[in-house]
Design a protein around this nucleic acid. Structure first.
Lengths: 227, 227, 227, 227
DNA sequence: TATGAATGAGAATTCATTCAT
DNA sequence: CATGAATGAATTCTCATTCAT
């Protein structure tokens, strides 16, 4: 079926990464379906046919972008989380991980959030596996948190997807020039998530900064995905 | 745009509503760009050319769906909110309004949330006006709430769009058969929003039910948009 | 799957027949795969997209041509053959039928003989059913003949496909201006088939002409398929 | 056409033959136009660019296959025929030659029979020369036969191409597992050709076997073209 | 000899839209 | 109001071929 061999030279990989980066940008701006491979050809300054050396289908291109996002997200999470941390901290690290990646790779994340269903079966299934693994991480953490806290609990799925909703919605409104800088955005979002809008403002800032092993600044500096 | 007179016969209106409803469903399922006017022709059992009596452009069709959503949302809000209510209640009513409409018109809302940017300039501008008006409502309420509460405050835009993110993300994960029924979903979401996951579960249920002027049940029964 | 309705107006049918005729000609001249739908668009003076109103796939176009050939061939045979005739005559009538159609619809028949395997599964299966029915007719006749004659027999499949080979190969060499006129071509071919090159020439011509119910001339005048 | 020197190393020749063999197989299976050079690259396990060392054009590849067929066919004929033989025997030897080669190199022969017109002008002309030479051989024999026999004669072209039709059509129906083994197929075909279906079965077998200088077995053992 | 990477030309097909009726 | 028939423009993808190495 697939006409291309599997090349793995350094050169090939670098070029592919470049194509993914640029494509993600265009997909984010125009939407996957509105984007023609010609647009990508134009933006990458490669010939139309030349692009097809790097992927077999426009859909595979979308898949490659999404797959890479999830894989990176999971890798970074595994690297960042230590079993020593308490649950709350781990949740916060998870969210920081997510948000930092999000904000530093806004295009890719918008594509992930928005073009979810643009994949065809085959690819959608593969992505679903990754996504499930990713969602399970935070779900397990929230369950652990709830077990610890006791009392009347919020439904687990609601608790989970509420968090994702808050975070993933960002691409629809966040304007770097107008809105809070990333670290503060993250902090405030977590405040709302943990303590609610009503009390979130009141919680001492220390709670947010002192418990995390890696300071936000450190986390941030590592983020760019494209090299 | 439209050269023809605006027909207003009862028949015409009914038919148009039917087309909008069916189109929204297909747009929600396949995405706006993947949906061809032929798909709509098939689903409505009208001829391709026949459809064009009811709209001039596929994009106008999308616009009509979105416009109708915002208009209804705003109307319902104005009908539901009373100046007597206190801020918290008004916020809750707003959210209930939004969520109820959302869940009862999932297709339309998914289209609204998802196909936001699929509109062309011209139409996008018109929708933006409505959307801004709608957003301002809740933004003003949140500001009022924060003024009342005093203390350190969360950024207004963050507070606003966090709420929308939580709510609008629903279309990506909510499965009626698997998840909580709508009223409870609403309640839990508001708990998280107001009090946070940590304490949200503990707040007495009474808080949620007794203060609202209109009971959820009443609210719900009004919701279906399609007749 | 199929986007088009099934129109059956007189006009539609006539137009489709015209397209089939012209396409058959081009397929015969350039081969199916070398022919682009653009070529057909040019030859029919219809727009590229306009053609697709009449078929869904270039392959379906080929199918329609082939199907029509077999159906006509079978119809004509059923009309021409009478149970009264003796076996030899029936065989001759079958061959006359085949050859007359062949020579009067050379393009279509070349396409049938040559582009056999250019059809995709789905269509190939449908054609196979017709072809089998057609082949069985002559096979049964040959078997009957052999039963009657007694003596050492030639293998049935060899006897059958040898006849088809002789006849269908015509498209590769026959030039109307250079070669015998059709009725004589037919006669000579049948002589060879029945009596061999060695003795075929010697058999009295009467054998060929007096036994057939319909004279060749009559048969020929009916042949054009395209109206 | 070709700018490069003609390499003649043993290695080169062997490799080219391998490529021709494999290509013939694919051409036979998928048809010339449907076959991409990539298909050949895959099947030969050579790189796309590497193949072009052995031919300059996909069409040249087809040409090489066909040319080699005709050349071999002519060589074998010249080796097999002796002026001593009587005409009938010579015709039989010609047919045996053709059929044996055909059946032992089905792929190549199908390509020859089927992809006749797929060549471009230039190449087609070259092949035509060979083909004419080949056809003339049998045509001359048949003329000689007819002169000898006297009586009313069958048209020469009809007599010639009827024979080719019978033989070349084989690729469309012959299934080794289902049909007669090759020597019998040959015998029966020749019976039909010489004596007709009606009497062909009755002719004594001896006629076929005793007069031929080379027994079929011998003929067959020489046939494989690919080394 | 051999190949990885690249490309121009062209292929089939789809789509939103129109227009005469 | 409604529709059958038609179309221009675009889209994804494939292909034979090349060229630097």
């Amino acid at each position: 079926m697939s006409n291309r061999l599997e090349p793995t030279s350094r050169n090939y990989d670098e070029k592919l990464q470049g194509i993914l980066k640029i494509s993600a940008k265009i997909f984010a701006e125009k939407g996957f379906h509105r984007t023609s491979v010609r647009d990508i050809s134009r933006a990458t300054k490669m010939s139309l046919a030349g692009l097809y050396y790097y992927f077999t289908t426009k859909e595979e291109l979308l898949y490659l972008i999404q797959e890479r996002c999830f894989v990176t997200l999971l890798q970074r999470w595994e690297r960042a989380a230590t079993p020593v941390m308490d649950v709350r901290t781990r949740i916060r690290v998870f969210a920081e991980n997510h948000l930092s990646f999000f904000c530093h790779n806004m295009h890719e994340m918008k594509v992930m959030a928005h073009e979810d269903e643009s994949l065809t079966e085959e690819f959608q299934v593969k992505i679903l596996v990754l996504k499930r693994r990713y969602v399970r991480v935070i779900m397990d953490l929230i369950r652990e948190l709830q077990d610890q806290e006791g009392g009347k609990k919020v439904d687990l799925r609601v608790a989970t997807f509420t968090l994702f909703g808050m975070m993933n919605w960002i691409y629809t409104w966040y304007q770097p020039k107008r809105d809070l800088p990333l670290p503060q955005l993250m902090e405030q979002m977590l405040r709302i998530y943990f303590f609610g809008v009503l009390h979130g403002g009141a919680v001492e800032a220390s709670w947010f900064n002192s418990t995390s092993g890696a300071s936000s600044k450190e986390t941030f500096s590592l983020w760019h995905n494209n090299q």
